[in-house]
Write a protein that binds this DNA or RNA. Structure first.
Lengths: 133, 133
DNA sequence: ATGAAATAGGACTTCAATAGTCGTATTTGA
DNA sequence: TCAAATACGACTATTGAAGTCCTATTTCAT
């Protein structure tokens, strides 16, 4: 509960890695070996980060990945959003259609949870990759 | 990901309910009916809240639950801790033995995640049930 | 040209956590 | 002594997370 997924962790580690090497091109193999991350899992994460325009891919031999933006313009929130592909919501009504929640109609904690949600977003958005390097 | 469990939500709703009735004794049936919460699930949550000394049980006919502390002395963090029975940790290394994590040794994001973790705890600890009533 | 190194991405399996159900025992007020 | 309430263990179903496997495509270097 309230745990980041491994995918998000892997994404953060990978982006930090590239940033720490001054945006030098890095491969999935290099990163997955160095940090003991399953190769195929990291590969998929990198593909998502590419589609989300946080990193850029360079295909073919001698290819790999570089950052698509400066490290101080990539937040933990960005990585979460791109890797998970959905909005973070601490309750169902913040991440999908509110009516889906079985208790939505009589729920008395929507507003306070909304406040908490807002604060959490701020925490994740204000931590930039540049602080992690 | 990063979602509160239904149990925690139910616990918050129940505690808020009791607080909003000026700590009048309330039953599981009354609460589960009013908020459309499965009876047995709520019952178990109430038992945990009792063991965690956030509420007090009154057994037997005419029994039910009352708060064990004033509403401004119960935080969302308290409810999470008692209902989940474990520490909240946004990464494995914060909620269980760090060595269990497959990437612990080479992990480069422990410190920044620790900072985020600390901020999250603050967010949850500073929201009191008295603000929800 | 061709082969090796790299990204792209779909399909599948495994495992653990969440959510809910069922059954029974115990307590206590009227 | 019965009904209304809490106490609690055992079970099932569903979902999501994590990882594996396989194949296609791109591109550099020889």
């Amino acid at each position: 509960m309230l745990k980041l997924s491994k995918k998000v962790e892997y994404g953060l580690i990978a982006i930090r890695h590239i940033a720490s090497l001054n945006n030098q091109i890095s491969t999935v193999k290099e990163i997955s070996d160095k940090y003991n991350i399953p190769n195929e899992v990291l590969a998929k994460v990198m593909q998502k980060l590419t589609r989300g325009k946080l990193i850029m891919s360079h295909q073919g031999a001698m290819g790999g990945y570089t950052l698509a933006r400066s490290a101080n313009d990539i937040s933990v929130m960005d990585v979460i959003g791109v890797v998970e592909g959905t909005q973070v919501g601490i309750a169902q009504c913040f991440s999908e259609a509110p009516e889906n929640c079985s208790i939505y109609l009589n729920c008395t904690i929507k507003n306070p949870l909304g406040k908490i949600q807002h604060n959490l977003e701020h925490v994740f958005a204000s931590m930039k990759v540049s602080e992690i390097v």
